[in-house]
């Protein structure tokens, strides 16, 4: 066996990537060759010794910086794609006609502007770009909320906070998160996000319906505080149901009783 081949086998043995037959055969080679056995042992010791080096965890600031960067890139991409959208069927017209047409259009706009200087300007381009950004953000939120990692789902809720006006799909996803997510922090973040839309009856109703589903004291207290702030009378019945739970924390019990009195 040549030296290179031997080195390859030593690395296979070390990394545990040998089949059982190969391993038995190689161990016989080692037994017959004490010098090689010593070298192998030395390599294994060094390999094991390397395992003493611990690696710390990256900070949360790294996540924040990354997602900011990604969000900016996505915004840039949407702006570009919006500006590139040009009706291809118009291309058969010669360039000169285009230039002339554009001149006429500019003239028309200028005249219109002077004749009607009081009318409000509508930033059409911005509206298109914003709509596209919102749609991509919606996809991102829905994808992140489905991830197994709680950290990613939190990121999803935080993305949802960036909507100027979340649509029904996002609100439904947030309500589902509030009712079904296994992580308390994610549920808490979902409540916080939903408070941006409490003027919508669906959201208020969803929050009220989620009261009996919550088992965590912090979530129960947060919902109680929110219902008092909203003066939501529909929440009284679910809170009364919750009070009948035997396992209910005593502090939560007191809080809910106070909340019911404040709402009535």
């Amino acid at each position: 066996m040549d030296k290179e081949q031997l080195k390859i086998q030593m690395m296979d043995y070390l990394s545990g990537s040998m089949h059982e037959d190969e391993m038995n055969e190689f161990e016989k080679v080692l037994q017959d060759n004490p010098a090689l056995q010593m070298e192998m042992q030395a390599l294994m010791d060094t390999w094991d010794r390397m395992g003493n080096l611990k690696t710390p965890e990256p900070s949360e600031a790294m996540d924040a910086t990354f997602f900011d960067m990604l969000s900016n890139e996505m915004d840039k991409q949407h702006q570009k794609s919006a500006s590139k959208k040009f009706p291809l069927w118009l291309w058969p017209f010669p360039k000169a006609q285009w230039v002339f047409g554009l001149l006429l259009l500019s003239l028309g706009i200028a005249v219109g502007y002077f004749l009607n200087s009081n009318s409000e300007e509508i930033p059409v381009d911005n509206v298109v770009v914003n709509e596209e950004t919102e749609s991509v953000r919606q996809k991102l939120v829905l994808t992140l909320l489905e991830q197994p990692s709680a950290n990613q789902r939190l990121q999803g809720v935080s993305e949802a906070n960036k909507f100027e006006d979340a649509d029904e799909i996002v609100i439904r996803a947030l309500l589902q998160t509030l009712n079904q997510d296994s992580n308390v922090n994610v549920r808490l973040a979902a409540i916080e996000s939903l408070t941006n839309y409490v003027d919508q009856p669906v959201v208020r109703q969803g929050l009220v319906q989620s009261i009996p589903n919550q088992e965590s004291p912090i979530l129960q207290i947060t919902l109680a505080n929110l219902m008092v702030a909203l003066q939501e009378k529909a929440s009284i019945e679910p809170f009364r149901q919750l009070l009948q739970e035997r396992k209910l924390d005593t502090t939560v019990q007191k809080k809910i009783k106070n909340s019911i009195e404040s709402i009535i």
Binding site: E57, F66, L70, M74, K139, L140, Q147, Q152, Q155
Partner: peptide, 15 residues
Amino acid sequence: GDLDKLGLLYERHKK
């Protein structure tokens, strides 16, 4: 062009 998938790659490989 599906840039939001980079977020998943980031979560998977950041550590």
